[in-house]
């Protein structure tokens, strides 16, 4: 990150901190949602942007974590301190199982992850005595630890913001580490990385599980925000949307998935309130991204800056 990057990050942080001063509850809710889905997109991008694996089952970890936390909190009155970690564990355990999909590559990996995603959706949908079927689980309370409890959407926004910043920092350390470097090596050329002595399969498996953990974290944050979860959260479109967010914002970057999430959710929830053909706007944005900004918004900005620097140098 250059000096401009740090400046931008600080400016964004300042805006994020003061946001509740000038934004109403609807906007606070929407921005919270953007942060949470940005985190989900970031988890997808750990695979897509760093290792080149295209996973379409991340909604599964997201939903299983959300359901676990919701069911424990609502039906068994388990306190947040246990229910939230339990959600993380459940989602990560699922990732440990689904991670075996990294034995395949390319289109086979995509197909297997789609199938796995549908299994989870099917179970949540059909096993209605336990999951509530279509009606899902309602009345999830705000998180509370002992006397400390979150009482409003604004307080929850700050909580989510803190978690997201912590995740972004850890993610940055992770991709800068030798492990992260080896992941990018695998993306560039798996055979070469393997011939250098790396156990590429194991690296990919570890990346998959970490990515599942991150998606589970997004799931737990989501269920406390929405206070309701139903099988739609495990559905195929959610996985696709998370991938789209990463691609539109800029795959392989940290800010990208959050920017993408902001654009997609913003278009859907805000533009739809005054423009009926908002779906068309989304379609145009997708096409424009593919045509003119294949590296997403962040890639586009970098390209423009590089071009300006080159002009200056001349």
């Amino acid at each position: 990150m250059g000096r401009v990057g740090i400046g931008l990050a600080l400016a964004a942080f300042a805006v994020a901190l003061t946001l509740p001063q000038f934004a109403g509850p609807f906007w606070m809710g929407l921005v919270t949602q953007m942060l949470i889905f940005g985190l989900l997109a970031l988890s997808v991008d750990l695979l897509l942007g760093q290792t080149g694996l295209f996973s379409l089952c991340h909604a599964s970890f997201f939903a299983v974590a959300a359901y676990t936390t919701a069911i424990l909190q609502v039906r068994y009155a388990v306190p947040t301190l246990l229910a939230a970690p339990a959600g993380l564990v459940a989602g990560t355990l699922l990732a440990l199982g689904f991670g075996l999909a990294v034995r395949t590559r390319g289109v086979y990996f995509i197909l297997i992850t789609i199938a796995l995603g549908y299994i989870v959706w099917g179970v949540l949908h059909r096993w209605s005595s336990f999951t509530g079927g279509d009606n899902g689980v309602t009345n999830v309370p705000f998180p509370a630890v002992g006397e400390l409890r979150i009482g409003s959407h604004t307080e929850y926004y700050y909580f989510v913001l803190a978690v997201v910043i912590a995740c972004a920092l850890v993610y940055r350390v992770l991709i800068a580490s030798p492990f992260g470097l080896s992941l990018r090596g695998i993306k560039a050329s798996e055979t070469r990385t393997r011939s250098l002595g790396y156990r590429t399969g194991l690296h990919l498996y570890a990346a998959f599980v970490l990515s599942g953990l991150l998606a589970s974290l997004a799931g737990v944050l989501y269920v406390y925000y929405n206070r309701f979860v139903n099988p739609v959260s495990a559905s195929f479109p959610i996985s696709v949307e998370a991938t789209l967010m990463a691609i539109i914002g800029g795959s392989g970057t940290i800010a990208g998935p959050f920017i993408g999430s902001g654009i997609i959710l913003g278009l859907r929830n805000w533009v739809s309130s005054f423009f009926e053909l908002y779906a068309t706007v989304m379609g145009v944005v997708f096409i424009a991204t593919v045509l003119w900004a294949p590296d997403g918004i962040v890639g586009l900005v970098n390209r423009l800056r590089a071009a300006r620097a080159r002009r200056k140098a001349l």
């Binding site: 509850p25 609807f26 809710g29 929407l30 139903n230 739609v232 929830n269 739809s272």
Partner: peptide, 21 residues
């Protein structure tokens, strides 16, 4: 009028918009 797109997430967000905004 708000479009819920038959998706509960969207429905929740739009309902909150109705109430707060």
């Amino acid at each position: 009028v708000a479009d819920t797109t038959c998706n509960p997430d969207q429905a929740i967000t739009q309902a909150r918009r109705m109430v707060h905004q």
